[in-house]
Every structure is written in structure tokens, then in C-alpha cells.
């Protein structure tokens, strides 16, 4: 099974664990996890390791999920890493706006099932595959392998 390094960013340990459990249940890959409590910590860890995909909570102290997504997209090294925003229904309108503004790839709303999470990831894979057909793709790691 393919190994995927997922960074889970949420100020709640409980929610980070829920995202991790859900990802494991998708059966898509053998997930390895990096965790961060906010956007700033996530960016620090980004420099230390290779991350295949990011799951970021919308509401976090210090640096929000949207601010983190902007920073990732502005960083040449990591700008193509897929980002999935994790949010509640109450913030959904803002998240849709953020998807357009900063280029987050998708979002999941709480509560989410393994099937819903799987569909989001498969959609990203399909999207990256389409982009690769259109032009030379420079994304790295797991997703590059999948669409090669």
C-alpha cells in the first residue's frame, strides 16, 4: 500500500485524532501523520519534512486555516501540496470563498464519514491527473506518483 504523509492541523487534539482515525478508515493508503496545533506550527514542520497532503481546521488560534493555506500557496517548495479544509457547517460559506481565494483543493464539513473523506481525496487525485494531462505537473510525493 502506498505511504502518504498527512499533516493534520487543528488546535483540538480530539479533532486531530478524529481526522486521523477517519483517514485510516478510508483504506486509501498507509497514512503517516504529522500534527500541528495551528498554522504557525504547521509551517515550521513543513520546512522539516515532506508532506503529501494537509488537513487544516478553519478556526485556530495564532494562524487560521485560511492563513495557513495562503502561506502554503505562496511558498514555492510546497505550493502544490493538496489542502483540505476541515470545518463546521456554520462556516461553510466562508470556506467556499476561501477555496476560490487561496486555492484550497477541497473542504469537508463536520461530521464527516470515511466515505466522504475518501471521495474528497479521490476528487483531488482526479483533478491533479487532469492538470497533468494539460501541462507538465510539478507536484511532489504521493500525488505525483498517483498521476504519473
Amino acid at each position: 500500500m502506498i505511504k502518504v504523509t498527512a499533516m493534520v492541523v487543528d488546535d483540538s487534539k480530539v479533532m486531530r485524532n478524529l481526522v486521523k482515525q477517519t483517514l485510516k478508515k478510508t483504506g486509501l493508503a498507509e497514512f503517516e501523520f504529522q500534527e500541528a496545533e495551528d498554522g504557525e506550527e504547521a509551517l515550521e514542520k513543513f520546512d522539516e519534512t515532506i508532506t503529501d497532503i494537509v488537513f487544516a481546521d478553519w478556526n485556530m488560534p495564532r494562524m487560521s486555516g485560511i492563513a495557513l493555506a495562503k502561506e502554503i500557496r505562496n511558498n514555492e517548495k510546497n505550493r502544490r501540496v493538496p489542502i483540505i479544509m476541515v470545518t463546521s457547517e456554520k462556516a461553510m460559506g466562508k470556506v467556499e470563498q476561501a477555496l476560490d481565494e487561496v486555492g484550497a483543493n477541497a473542504y469537508v464539513t463536520k461530521p464527516f464519514t470515511p466515505d466522504e473523506m475518501k471521495q474528497k481525496i479521490e476528487k483531488i487525485i482526479a483533478s491533479l491527473g487532469n492538470k497533468k494531462q494539460q501541462k507538465s505537473d510539478k507536484s511532489g510525493g504521493f500525488f505525483k506518483n498517483l498521476v504519473s
Binding site: K13, V14, S88, K90, K110, P111
Partner: peptide, 17 residues
């Protein structure tokens, strides 16, 4: 405590929708 709060929060967000 976090678990109880998060669970209530997730349900509440869905109720709002």
C-alpha cells in the same frame, strides 16, 4: 472535556445547517 465539547459543537453546527 475536549471530546464532549467537540461532539456538542459538531452536532450543533449540523443542527444549524
Amino acid at each position: 472535556n475536549d471530546l464532549a465539547g467537540e461532539l456538542a459543537n459538531i452536532i450543533a453546527g449540523d443542527v444549524k445547517a
